[in-house]
Write a protein that binds this DNA or RNA. Structure first.
Lengths: 190, 190
DNA sequence: CGGTCTCTTGACGGAGTTCAAAGCTAGTGG
DNA sequence: CCACTAGCTTTGAACTCCGTCAAGAGACCG
């Protein structure tokens, strides 16, 4: 039941059986229904989440009252607000499940102990977060250089299966255009 | 001469004197003139840079042939292309000095050895890159929710001293609008 | 089924781009 | 130390991509 996480970790570091046992004893699997919140804006984030099944997203509510999705997380992705987590400051974001999810939630206290007991995890999270940062840079590049239509087609090509899983208005906001415009792109009326 | 880096590291982890000696023996300070490139698009990135003096930026050239700055790095910031670095793939970015710089360049080989010799550095880089990732998320939030004029004023308020240091067209592209439009914002003609 | 989300369509408007030309500034070499 | 030049900034007019609004059509879930 924790195997997706162990598999993911073993891609980057090799844990001893004893370390796996220790880690396992600290983990809890949670089943969360669709549309539930893992984090609310204004709340201090002190948990990190690893999705083993389903899909979650990080979003904000803009000045017009519309939700805008900043990030999706699917199987084998971590999701949290690292700024709020590290600085113990109120979060600017909501984190919400998009589908019924199974996920591993690790509290800050637990994680801090684990990182001390199993220093290899420092390496694991270092590599994972450097890659995430790299991916965020690429995301900004695409937002900068592509038109709305190009972003849509590009995303569709890279994630043909994922597109089915989320409502179109969420994807539209992730790609930074309106749901109406997305509809026109899909209809070829643009 | 390496003190800015040691100071920065000691904010997050405490190194033993022997570790400091080892680290020091592996570092080289480089003086780089303004407008020189540390990384070219298409090249595999196998160096990370810590700025001790000056300013550098990561940028791309868009389809119209215009440079667009994705990130600035000033004193006490790391800059590199982590995706190219980790995957050994050609970079999508240029990295270039904006001012005359003094920086510490660490090759991938050297860094990998250092991380093994001084495991605390794993922790240091984990924390730094998680914070960077958090900052990238905030950047995307601002790009999504603010108008061009709001982004300009917001950036000016947060970095009043920095704005003087870079040409306006670089800052305009970083904030994702044209140099001409920036000029109009500054003149209050918008 | 009934109501609430979600998606579509068209008309209109506006924030920001593009282009071209002129004005300014700073660095460089004589 | 001045003059020249290349790079940077400003300005205005025309244009365009995409947002907003409003209304209707589906689709899904209880």
């Amino acid at each position: 039941m924790f195997t997706p996480l162990f598999d993911h970790i073993q891609k980057f570091v090799t844990l001893e059986p004893s370390e796996i046992d220790l880690l396992q004893s600290c983990l809890k699997l949670a089943k969360i229904k669709k549309k539930e919140h893992l984090l609310q804006e204004g709340q201090v984030c002190n948990t990190i989440y690893f999705i083993t099944k389903g899909c979650a997203r990080q979003y904000i509510i803009n000045s017009k009252g519309t939700e805008q999705t900043l990030q999706f997380a699917i199987e084998n992705w971590w999701i949290t607000d690292y700024l709020s987590y590290h600085n113990t400051t109120p979060s600017h974001f909501y984190i919400q499940t998009v589908e019924n999810c199974e996920l591993i939630a690790i509290e800050k206290n637990t994680l801090e102990s684990l990182l001390i007991e199993i220093p290899k995890l420092e390496r694991y999270f270092r590599i994972v977060s450097q890659k995430s940062f790299g991916a965020a840079q690429m995301r900004i590049k695409f937002l900068f250089t592509m038109s709305a239509e190009e972003r849509y087609h590009h995303f569709n090509n890279l994630n043909p299966d994922f597109v089915q899983r989320v409502p179109q208005y969420m994807l539209a906001s992730y790609l930074d255009f309106s749901a109406e415009f997305m509809s026109k792109i899909r209809a070829g009326k643009v």
